[in-house]
Design a protein around this nucleic acid. Structure first.
Lengths: 144, 144
DNA sequence: GCATGTCCATAAAGAGTTTATATAAAGCTG
DNA sequence: CAGCTTTATATAAACTCTTTATGGACATGC
């Protein structure tokens, strides 16, 4: 395929459509914010409340309430910070780690199932675009 | 690329990561359910309340409340159905149509901006995978 | 035309959010 | 090091979005 045939607008439209539809498939047993917070803790380790609130773009009182619910569910624990007694460090319990990983696995498998219904040519094209998809995800992370 | 090099699990993981991050970027001035309802009305024309509730997988009272808010905002209108006086048909106003299209455009452009930061090779690979991405979106729609 | 089912509205309750404010600890300044 | 300012978290009240339960209007089938 020649360079002139690329169409970023069409690609953007396809990815946007894919995103909107994917949202609807996410499990609703927990809020998006809670699930994303658990994922952040799994990827980056213990974080303070204010930090988590900033990452999820919610207010600090919202994150305080959210963490309280997750703690009551046994998915996270609150630790004190010896070097700064104002701080509450939130960290995943084993149950929390298991939950977030199972949820991610289920999300990945949902896509895998759909991919299995594509033609061989389409799957090969996606595989060839894998570095691009991974790069896009990385750019999205940096974009706040 | 040979067929044996394809890895559905890696593709699924990349797409899951991409869509999850994209969800966080969506505007929050309106609930996801409201925005998706407007998009449905734009794509398929006027629908009845129960119908919209089923499409969005919320209860009928939730959709009734949501439509009331959208109506007060001037984004939709309620029409009676002459052939069945129980039915309320919900349809987009001009303002509603403009809103949903502007929102979609903004979502597409957010992806375009990221795509613009990829290498030429990556963009070409994505363009080659465009039919696959569109097919995936279609499969996602059918999947309830 | 009466019984039953469908479509929508209303009410009450619960989860998740916001703003405003309070409390405690840390850091700075003279 | 005393007092002021800033930072980290908690609490309270209010608002939004959702659910379940229920009621009223209309449609349908016998």
């Amino acid at each position: 395929m020649s360079r002139e045939d690329t169409d970023p607008a069409a690609i953007g439209a396809a990815l946007y459509g894919l995103t909107l539809r994917a949202v609807r498939r996410l499990p609703r047993e927990m809020s998006l914010t809670s699930a994303a917070t658990l994922a952040t803790l799994d990827l980056t380790g213990p974080r303070r409340i204010t930090d988590l609130a900033a990452v999820q773009a919610v207010t600090q009182p919202a994150m305080t309430a959210l963490v309280r619910v997750l703690e009551e569910s046994g998915l996270v624990e609150r630790w004190g910070d010896a070097s700064d007694k104002r701080v509450t460090l939130v960290c995943l319990t084993e149950a929390g780690t298991a939950y977030v990983r199972a949820r991610r696995e289920a999300g990945v498998q949902a896509f895998e199932r759909l991919i299995g219904e594509l033609t061989a040519d389409e799957i090969e094209a996606l595989a060839a675009a894998l570095p691009a998809l991974q790069h896009l995800a990385e750019l999205e992370s940096q974009d706040q």
